[in-house]
Nucleic acid binder design. Structure first.
Length: 494
RNA sequence: GGGCCGGUAGCUCAGCGGUAGAGCACCUGACUUUUAAUCAGGGUGUCCUGGGUUCGAUCCCCAGCCGGCUCACCA
């Protein structure tokens, strides 16, 4: 027996050594599992319904020992696998001295295979009476506490496997996230969209106003950037004749980290030829509602004490009206950066000098509009300065056909009728460069290759961007983005 | 980057200017249908790190590291 004073690790390491000395392999290569724990429960219930309360069927299940209750010459353990858990019951007289001693030597956290018949205990729990137990992987470190689970958020993020072992809610959030993605692909595939993959490493990062990560390619001896959006490449594919494309993928922005921001996050972007932003709006509300019904079984979600009803049609409000309602500024009345800045200052909103009119309006949106958008809302028609890739409204040329979708106080979608006039696009890029010269570090860069693509002719197109992480937050009720990203960005330890 | 809060046993946490505490986990013993099993016994520790104050610091002070929330920035 291990001496007191030895760490749990040392005790278990000693057990492992002893097992090897006895010729027992603590890390065997495979195990024949006949059923999952969930299968056993369902099958046993079916057998019971047929009146077979003591079935002969022998099951082999495998999983981690999640709880151990030793009773002397009997031992109970909970075996957890990817589908659920089942109780195992070991009796000394049924197993023989040696076999039972080996079971007594198992530890919490070990992965085992157990074989036996199912029965119900006096307290009614479906249980496997173990006729054979096989160690499949010795665990050297103890699992997190069984009752309180793992609370330490730092360990939950850094050692996510412990979080997944200990906290079923955490596990469920990631299952939900995965199901959202799967349902989203089915939805888009069913509407004739083609899923594509475009480059992550690029000579220049465009398609959004954000700071990129930089890296370097040795063989090509050139500076590269990680993409900040998939937009410009997807539109090249529209030019090429793929009329409905989408990409679900990771994009990277070299900006702050918060409960709503991770440096790498997952976006959906889709582009549909011969559609405009009204068509995209219809798809977004239909898709999000459909996803909720498919994944959660309901069109009403709960987020931060809010009940959010996703049933279409969603509320539509112009940006002008939204800003007017929430902060009293009628922004079209201030046609240039200086007058708008003065008006904002008059109302006690301080803003950086370098910000152009577009960025000032953006500030009003994020400060006053976004936090108040709880129920699903489309905010329409943005100033052209803020949207260099979107097409103007024919009747109001200082605005573009763009909308953002908000809910739960977060922006989840951004879409527009795509600008396909190559000459105007070039001019818009030039304006962005002027903003950059004014000190704005987050502007579009002029992408000559993209302009060439537009010069070959892009059909009228409706485009969409959606933040998958935020959608997952809403669907799982998690107020922090870190709880829907398996391995969120944290500072390196030491 | 700023502000606030936190870091004590494997986990969840309490505590205090004077040799470090509880529950779970772990170890020893009892127990053949238990299930947060129970009962008896055992504390297993770089009190985040480094300085300082002090007779004495886990506690007080300073600096740093890591995390959370928040503001700023963004999606």
């Amino acid at each position: 027996m291990p001496d007191r004073g030895e760490s749990i690790y040392e005790q278990r390491l000693a057990k492992l050594t002893k097992l090897r000395q006895r010729g027992v392999e603590p890390y065997p290569h495979r195990y024949h599992r006949s059923h999952t724990t969930q299968d056993v429960v369902f099958l046993f219930q079916d057998l019971e319904k047929e009146g077979k309360t003591n079935p002969e069927t022998v099951f082999q299940v495998a999983g981690r020992i999640a709880a151990l209750r030793g009773m002397g010459k009997a031992t109970f353990m909970d075996i957890r696998d990817g589908w659920g858990k089942i109780q195992a019951y070991c009796r000394a007289d049924a197993l023989g001295k040696e076999e039972y001693a080996a079971i007594k030597d198992l530890d919490l956290g070990d992965i085992v295979g157990i074989e036996g018949r199912a029965f119900r205990t006096h307290t009614g729990e479906i249980t496997l009476e173990v006729s054979q137990a096989t160690l499949l992987s010795k665990s050297l470190l103890p699992p997190p506490e069984k009752w309180h689970g793992l609370r330490d958020v730092e360990i939950r993020y850094r050692q996510r496997y412990l979080d997944l072992m200990a906290n079923q809610e955490a596990r469920q959030a990631f299952v939900t996230r995965s199901r959202i993605l799967a349902a989203m692909r089915r939805f888009l595939d069913g509407r004739g969209f083609l899923e594509v993959e475009t480059p992550i490493l690029l000579p220049q990062a465009g398609g959004a106003m954000a700071r990129p990560f930089q890296t370097y390619h040795n063989a090509l001896d050139c500076q590269l950037y990680l993409r900040i959006a998939t937009e410009l490449h997807l539109k090249r594919l529209i030019v090429g004749g793929f009329e409905r494309v989408y990409e679900i993928g990771r994009i990277f922005r070299n900006e702050g980290i918060s409960t709503r921001h991770n440096p790498e996050f997952t976006s959906l972007e889709s582009y549909q030829a011969y559609a405009d932003y009204n068509d995209v709006m219809a798809i977004v509300e239909e898709m999000v509602c459909h996803l909720a019904k498919e994944v959660l079984g309901t069109a009403t979600i709960t987020f931060k004490e809010h009940q959010i009803d996703l049933t279409p049609p969603w509320r539509r409000i112009t940006l002008r009206q939204a800003i007017l309602e929430h902060c009293g500024i009628d922004f079209p009345a201030f046609p240039d950066a200086q007058s708008l800045r003065e008006e904002m200052l008059r109302r006690g909103i301080s803003v950086e000098e370098w910000k152009g009119r577009g960025k000032l309006v953006d500030e009003l949106i994020s400060t006053f509009v976004e936090p108040n958008m709880i129920q699903p809302t489309f905010v329409l028609d943005y100033p052209v300065e803020l949207s260099p890739l979107a097409k103007r409204k024919p009747e109001e040329p200082h605005l573009v056909e763009r909308f953002e979708g908000f809910m739960g106080g977060m922006e989840i979608a951004n879409a527009f009728t795509e600008l396909n006039d190559p000459l105007e696009q070039r001019e818009r890029f030039r304006e962005q460069l002027r903003q950059r010269e004014m000190g704005d570090e987050e502007t579009e860069t002029l992408d000559e290759d993209f302009l060439t693509a537009l010069e070959h002719g892009m059909p009228p197109t409706g485009g969409l961007g959606m933040g998958i992480d935020r959608l997952a937050m809403l669907f799982t009720g998690q107020p922090s983005i870190r709880d829907v990203i398996l391995f969120p960005m944290l500072r390196q330890k030491e």
